[in-house]
Design a protein around this nucleic acid. Structure first.
Lengths: 131, 131
DNA sequence: TTGCGTGCAAAGGTTTTGCATGGCA
DNA sequence: TGCCATGCAAAACCTTTGCACGCAA
């Protein structure tokens, strides 16, 4: 099984750049497109999806479920933590905390379920919105 | 702000029954419909969505994100635990464990984020699929 | 030159909306 | 009887697929 050839194209570079530059480190396809548009770059919707798929297969990018769509982010930013999604403001926050890993380990050992930290999202209400 | 009137209709009763009878306690809209069909009952797709929305607003039902769609389940079954979704077989499992509550409490106290246990789903691989 | 990548248009699947009719209280 | 609920059809969304053309190596 030979590795398939792969080209370093303009859209691929732009998508990587956009994800790397993003503040919140997770973006919807729509956000990626409008971000590029602001910079005067234009690429097709289909191309974005296909490049993101490819990056996901390679493990460079992670795909998350959001409300009515997916979010994408660079995988290396999210190896060892969970994400928190605030249901009030919709933001996706990161939490780096050894307790999280402890829970993963516990679930793995005692419940026979291997948790993928980087894909898991805790839902709730963030501090700002709780006020 | 007066409470809006609400009727106890056949579709509403059927949907509640179906969710209450379901083994896995979470169903997609499609599953609800085919389940009813097997019992010889027929209600419209739109009606299912609208009743589920209403039940969610009242807090009687919880809505979960799944791949390419939503799952619904009775809220009172899921007050105090997380869910695990196996990405291999797609099943939604329950986990009742004090460690989970401990993590929620920790995140709430130390990270200022109030976790909604019943809406949160941990992603990973279940024991059966890991073999 | 080769064959992967692109982008448009169209298809697919799920959820929502509009509107006339039906049914609960 | 007065509203709310229903269900069909159509629209709205997000994502995927088909296909001819473009471009990286």
């Amino acid at each position: 099984m030979a590795t398939r050839a792969s080209y370093n194209t303009r859209p691929l570079r732009l998508i990587r750049e956009t994800l790397a530059d993003s503040e919140h480190s997770h973006m919807t396809v729509e956000e990626i497109l409008s971000n590029l548009k602001e910079r005067g770059e234009k690429i097709g919707l289909t191309t974005v999806y296909r490049n993101l798929d490819k990056l996901c297969e390679q493990g460079e990018v992670k795909k998350y479920r959001g409300d009515g769509g997916y979010c994408f982010g660079l995988a290396d930013r999210c190896e060892h933590h969970f994400h928190l999604r605030c249901e009030s403001c919709g933001r996706l926050l990161h939490i780096e905390c050894e307790k999280v890993q402890q829970l993963s380990d516990h679930v793995s050992v005692h419940h026979g379920f291997r948790v993928d930290n980087s894909k898991t999202v805790l839902y709730g209400t963030c501090g700002d919105c709780a006020k």
